[in-house]
Computed example of a mutant assay.
Amino acid sequence: MKPILTLIFLMFITSCEKNSTNRNPYLQEINFRFDANLNLPLYSPLTNTGSTVLITTDGIGTKGIFIINSGFNQYRAFEASCPNHAANNCSTMTLNGQIATCSCEGYEYSLFTGQQLNRPDDGNRYYDMLEYRATFSGSTVVVTN
């Protein structure tokens, strides 16, 4: 009887899952869908690997989105609002190649990974960029959240 109880206890322990998330308190979850037709001149740079565009259309993300061609018909999309403070008048990041920069503090983020490149070593919690789902079909990149 004891081996059976031990087995049941082990199964119970290993089947439990810690379902916590590292939710960014500064960014809202906004539902949207955006289609970028790569045949249009505005989005045609996305046909080249490493090219990025900034979309600032109202209702698309909090402050807009960055879309990058990461190679081999793979695309990534990230929120254009700096993830390390509340949205305000300086929180829309600027684009410099494959780097997004927050004009408030000068934080830099890689658009290939979304990771903060110049994270201060001060013991505070810092967030990477909020990534959205990007899929490629035909000549269109569809970004959704």
Rank of each mutant, 00 (worst) to 15 (best):
M93A: 11
A86I: 13
T52H: 04
L42D: 08
Y43H: 07
C82T: 10
L46S: 10
I60R: 02
T62G: 12
N37Q: 07
T47A: 08
R33M: 02
I55M: 05
C90W: 10
T49I: 14
T56R: 08
V53L: 00
I99A: 14
Q28A: 15
N96V: 15
P25S: 05
I99V: 15
E79N: 03
G64K: 02
I55L: 03
G61V: 07
P83N: 10
R76D: 05
R33F: 00
T49D: 13
N37H: 10
N84D: 12
I55D: 01
P83T: 10
Q98F: 15
T57H: 07
K63G: 06
R76W: 05
E29S: 11
N69A: 02
Y43S: 04
P25K: 06
G50C: 11
S110Y: 11
I55E: 00
I68P: 04
R76Q: 12
P83Q: 09
C90Q: 13
C102S: 06
T49N: 13
G64Y: 01
C102M: 00
Q98S: 15
L95S: 13
E105T: 02
T56D: 12
Q74H: 09
T101V: 12
F66A: 00
N96S: 15
A100N: 07
N89Q: 15
N84Y: 10
E29W: 06
A86F: 14
P41T: 01
E29I: 12
I99G: 14
E79K: 01
F34V: 09
Q28C: 06
E108L: 05
M93C: 07
P41A: 07
T101S: 11
E105F: 08
T62C: 03
L95R: 15
S110L: 12
S91I: 09
N96Q: 14
L27M: 11
I55V: 13
F78W: 14
M93K: 05
G64N: 07
F32M: 01
S44W: 09
I30R: 05
G106R: 05
G61M: 02
Y109K: 11
Y107N: 02
